[in-house]
Computed example of a mutant assay.
Amino acid sequence: MSKRRLTQNQQRRIQSNHHKKISKKEFEWQDEMLGDIQQGIVVTRHAKHADVETESGEIFRCNLRRTLKNVVVGDVVSWRLGNEQLQGISGVIEAIYPRKNELSRPDYYDGIKVMAANIDQIIIVSAVLPQLSLNIIDRYLVICENANIPALIVLNKIDLLDAQARQEVEKQLAIYQKIGYQTLCLSADSGENMATLDAYLAQGTSIFVGQSGVGKSSLINRLLPEVNAQTGEVSDISGLGQHTTTASRLYHLQQGGNLIDSPGIREFGLWHLEPEQITQGYREFQSVLGTCKFRDCKHKDDPGCAVREAVELGKIDSVRFENYHRLIESREETKSQRHFRKEDL
């Protein structure tokens, strides 16, 4: 008995339903449609897909197995190439290799959100405009210390300062140099000290973090002219930068090393950290922690506080000490606000 042939309308309906399943992410790659397992690195993370780069430098857009909840830029993954491309999708990511480290931030809706993985150093980008905020730098440094990832503090737009103003910001940055952090003043516009930044970036995989408007995209345009990252102006009303980057990406640098650019974040929240973790994020506190008179010392007005005594003796900078308590207070306020928001849902 001969097989019944499908009409053209039936074929079109089947094909239409097939594409609808793919667009709704109902489609699942079957083993017979896929090749052998390969290793690659995630270089771009989109909402529903990820771009995987092979050892030969080819890039393929892939679906994610439903069991993979969190694939980020920098992840080393095992993936399989499909025998045909379906709506621009070339394959599927099967698994993630163990991470060396990861950079995370809290999200009101998603809880803890991993931004990138397998990072060698975090480049904290600040600027003289909208203004140099040591409190924001300290916030990022707490994250770096808890993730155990080295940090470089970069001050951009240094060309906008006169000699006196430059001396003042260098004095502020000296606070961090004294406790072992590396700092660098530069200008993406004039090119000042960009060669020094190149040398830092060539050492491995780096990621830029910082408020919107500090010039992260301008730095990327200077480092990678072919990328042409969109830049944003600082708002005259809010004094804050406008969000420009839309997807996390990993770029290969000509001088060596890799650079991860992630969507602009105005501020890293710390409400996901315990107070003890914020305390551990201040490296100069470590030599005196555990020597306070009381074990539950809050390092504020407590009698016999070794940390406050170190501040009074000039061993810990008073600005950092004040910022520490601001971060603790800010954490408590944010946790309370988040609790009320959850109750309203």
Rank of each mutant, 00 (worst) to 15 (best):
A310S: 03
S16A: 08
N258Q: 12
Q39S: 07
E58C: 09
I175G: 06
Q280H: 09
H243R: 13
K171Q: 08
R139K: 09
I237K: 15
I237T: 15
L259S: 04
R13W: 11
D31T: 14
P275I: 00
L345A: 10
N9G: 11
G35T: 12
K342H: 03
T279Q: 06
F321A: 05
E53V: 11
L313V: 08
V125M: 14
E276S: 13
S238T: 15
H243G: 13
A147E: 10
A310I: 02
G304H: 02
I265M: 06
R13K: 13
L197V: 13
S262F: 11
D261K: 11
L161C: 11
S104M: 13
S262G: 08
Y251N: 02
C62S: 06
A95D: 14
A188L: 06
L81F: 06
N9T: 11
A174Q: 08
T183L: 03
P225N: 01
Q11N: 14
D107A: 01
L132N: 05
L250Y: 09
G204Q: 03
I96E: 05
G57H: 05
R5W: 14
V209Q: 01
L313Y: 08
Q87Y: 14
E94T: 12
A50K: 00
S133N: 09
G204C: 01
D75I: 07
L86P: 05
R139W: 05
L201F: 05
